[in-house]
């Protein structure tokens, strides 16, 4: 599972190495370019962008675009900036991640250590549900949220994200617990611990690594979601991504590119920070979710 084990024993010549390093650096620049350009230009006043070179450093650096993006930009009806939507996203992500991770842990525990006839079918159905195109559930979900009185509300969005997050969180914990020695569970059973006791005392204390992976994964996915947000959020519960899109796509007035960039970075900031702080686990999580399936 770890990416950072030994590297290859293949030897390369000096010319080969130079080529390799050149290619690697070229691609590093390719990946860094958009972010770098966004940061640079978010610090420029508007005329400097429309009249100048995007690669040039700001002549008169200003934080005004950031202030505008955060608190005064026109999104929707009112000029509130991204602030309220940022809050929406936080209020949506935290409970959705917490609930789906907790359920995933319990499901993974049952599916590996308390198997019952048909457990493989349950797992297969869950696995498939991770990959469905969400377009297939948009119509009935909109209907159901309406019937439940949750249309356009944060609780409605949280419900949606929990429901469609369970598949992946279960997948992570199941794969992790599958490698966890069943003898330990048996030993605890003989010692007299019951279902929940074994979970709390034996399984959870060693679940740190996978919990981190799962939380990062769910956080990133739910924070970055656009489709559910744009379909179900309405005006009041609009998450960050939808607000950003509305800001960038708004056809009224002058296009304030610098504000757009500041807003885009603000929208990306939480996941970027999570990635920088816990990137190593993030990679592992991606691997666990994909290579292992």
């Amino acid at each position: 599972m770890s990416v950072a084990t030994q590297s290859t024993a293949v030897r390369t010549g000096r010319a080969g190495r130079a080529l390799i390093v050149t290619v690697l650096i070229f691609f590093a620049l390719f990946y860094l370019l958009p972010l770098g350009v966004m940061v640079i230009n978010s610090l420029k006043p508007l005329p400097e962008i429309t009249g100048g070179n995007m690669m040039a450093l700001p002549q008169e650096p200003t934080l005004e675009p950031w202030r505008s993006a955060w608190s005064t930009a026109q999104i929707g009806v009112q000029a509130t900036g991204l602030k309220p939507y940022f809050l929406n996203s936080i209020l949506m992500v935290v409970p959705a991640v917490a609930i789906s991770t907790m359920l995933g842990a319990l499901n993974g525990y049952v599916l590996t250590k308390w198997r019952f006839p048909g457990h493989r079918w349950v797992f297969g159905l869950l696995l498939f549900s991770c990959f469905i195109p969400f377009q297939i559930v948009l119509i009935p979900m909109a209907r159901l949220l309406g019937l439940m009185g949750l249309a356009g509300s944060l609780p409605g969005l949280i419900l949606v994200h929990v429901v469609y997050g369970i598949g992946f969180s279960t997948l992570y914990f199941r794969n992790y617990y599958a490698a966890f020695p069943t003898e330990l569970v048996r030993a605890a059973m003989i010692d007299g611990a019951g279902f929940f006791r074994i979970f709390w005392r034996i399984m959870l204390p060693v679940s740190g690594p996978i919990a981190v992976v799962c939380i990062i994964w769910q956080f990133t996915n739910i924070w970055n979601d656009f489709l559910f947000g744009v379909s179900f959020a309405g005006l009041d519960a609009m998450p960050m991504t939808v607000a950003l899109n509305n800001l960038v796509q708004s056809s009224t007035g002058v296009r304030e590119y610098n504000v757009h960039f500041a807003a885009a970075i603000l929208a990306a900031l939480p996941t970027l920070i999570v990635y920088i702080v816990a990137g190593r686990y993030f990679v592992r999580g991606l691997m666990a979710g994909s290579v292992k399936g």
């Binding site: 330990l184 048996r186 003989i190």
Partner: peptide, 17 residues
């Protein structure tokens, strides 16, 4: 199992880490 008054030593020892 816990009420059979048995104790078991496992191959992998199964010590709680």
């Amino acid at each position: 199992p816990s009420r059979r008054n048995i104790a078991m030593v496992f191959q992998s020892y199964a010590l709680y880490p």
